[in-house]
Design a protein around this nucleic acid. Structure first.
Length: 426
RNA sequence: GGUGGGGUGGCAGAGCGGUUGAAUGCGGCAGUCUUGAAAACUGUUGUGGGGAGUUAUCUCCACCGUGAGUUCAAAUCUCACCCCCACCGCCA
């Protein structure tokens, strides 16, 4: 959520930002609503002041056992007026809030302007493996190795769900542990294991609601949502709280399953593991002081990159353009890993700075030690990293001519020191 | 799910329907005392919004789980919902 005061004071800038996101939005209407709200507010406040004064007088009269009847009659009239003006105030405030929740964040000035074709490749790391045979896809490999069973996952649940088996399940578990350990021990994050179901207030706090409700799995009877990312429960840890300046920055990392309906995306990238309804992810979340947030974004990005470097997977860093940027973000880098079987770059991480956008929605503040004043902090998050596409890249890039898959060295301690995945089950 | 108890400031905990933003204690901050610390004593100590202003501050409004209601007037009375605690039931 943007600050209405900010919008008023930076009307042109905000309007321009919305244009850069390729959105038509009537700021004039919003501001005239706010003008009306302000007028009503001062009207209501004046009435209430009048009421408080009359009330004190009545109390004094009654205390001295004097006749308060005429004053009480006067209060009736004031109260009636207050009801009226407060009613209108409430309606208009609700309308304003509703509008504010649908306005996206202002893109940072460093972003390339335009649609996804304008995304900028910032840097690349590593090289595609040189294979002297035609590489198989992860679908073929996992079938031969009997480590992923998609037909049965479909039978159990539906299409685009994953059933890992044997080495597949172990590889998944090893990856989660490896990533968490890296972030905890090397990058200084604290591990969190949050609930996978959250309420409406949490979903609104991080910006998934009200806009993306149809993308979420919702439990109707309880009005709870399956989390689409750990960002939601972890960022909401501090909802409605004021932190001391000294505790910042806070670095949290969490493994969770993530659930996405992916409504409307059928037919696109739906083969194998590329786009699924439930997947594992290790997420990093930061709470920082506003003046540090862009430096922290670079560090966050580096932390995510290090996962891929350690796994020896070639990747590139992409800075998203203004129109490709997600709703709540000011700036975002995607990490895309190269997978040789499908011969594509696959997005495995998004590292974003939300500035005060989420903090304002979720009401997360900190108190400056010097001035003792509170202000909204900045939130960031990034995947470190999403698992299924990483599994694709490992299987496809580390595959051998005989159909086995070499295990990246950093994972071996998590897999009994084994060096290779072979077919082991029947 | 059932029954009972309860939600008040950073925490604990008072609060007859009317000078209650809210007693008291603890904690925090500042000061006195001390070589220093502790103790003691004194003062201070919420959030959001509006207005004024010599940006020090002054002033007004709202906030006692949430929402609705009763009333001239609600932290205080009524109802609904949410949450917490205890016990029972069910259960990995």
């Amino acid at each position: 959520m943007l600050d209405l005061k900010f919008i008023r004071e930076n009307r042109d800038l905000t309007q321009k930002a919305l244009c850069e996101r390729n959105l038509k939005f009537d700021l004039d209407n919003l501001i005239s609503l706010d003008d009306r709200r302000r007028k009503l507010l001062s009207e209501a406040e004046a009435l209430r002041a009048e009421k408080n004064k009359a009330n004190d007088e009545i109390a004094a009269l009654l205390k001295n056992k004097k006749d308060a009847k005429p004053r009480i009659e006067g209060m009736k009239e004031i109260s009636r007026k207050i009801d009226e003006s407060e009613g209108r105030l409430k309606d208009i405030s609700a309308e304003i809030d509703k509008v504010l929740l649908t306005i996206p964040n202002v893109p940072h000035s460093s972003l390339p302007r335009g649609d996804a074709s304008c995304n900028q490749i910032v840097r690349s790391w590593g090289e595609a493996p040189k294979l002297d045979f035609k590489p198989a896809t992860h679908i073929e490999l996992s079938q031969k190795l009997d480590i992923i069973d998609l037909p049965r996952a479909t039978k159990i649940t539906g299409s685009n769900f994953i059933l890992y088996k044997g080495w597949g399940a172990r590889l998944e578990r090893a990856l989660i542990n490896f990533m968490l350990d890296l972030h905890i021990h090397k990058h200084g994050y604290t591990e969190i294991f949050p609930p996978f179901l959250v309420n409406r207030a949490s979903m609104t706090g991080t910006g998934q609601l009200p806009k993306l409700e149809e993308d979420m799995y919702r439990l109707k009877d309880d009005d709870l949502f399956l989390i689409p990312t750990a960002e939601v429960p972890v960022t909401n840890i501090f909802r409605d709280e004021i932190l001391a300046e000294e505790v910042l920055p806070v670095y949290y990392t969490a493994y969770t399953a993530c659930f996405r309906r992916e409504a409307g995306s059928y037919g696109k990238d739906t083969k194998g593991l590329t786009r699924v309804h439930q997947f594992d992810k290790v997420e990093m979340v930061k709470f920082v002081k506003p003046e540090d947030s862009y430096e922290e974004l670079e560090k966050l990005l580096n932390n995510a990159e290090e996962v891929l470097q350690a796994l020896g997977l070639p990747y590139r860093v992409v800075m998203l353009s203004t129109q490709d940027l997600s709703f709540a973000a000011s700036k975002c880098y995607d990490l895309e890993v190269y997978a040789s079987g499908v011969d594509r770059w696959l997005e495995v991480s998004s590292c974003s700075n939300f500035e005060g956008f989420q903090a304002r929605r979720a009401n997360i503040k900190f108190r400056r030690k010097e001035t003792k004043k509170t202000e909204f902090l900045h939130t960031l998050n990034g995947s470190g990293v999403a698992l299924p596409r990483t599994v694709i890249a490992i299987l496809e890039n580390y595959q051998q001519k005989d159909g086995s898959v070499i295990i990246p060295e950093v994972l071996r301690p998590y897999l009994d020191g084994e060096e290779r995945i072979n077919r082991t089950t029947d």
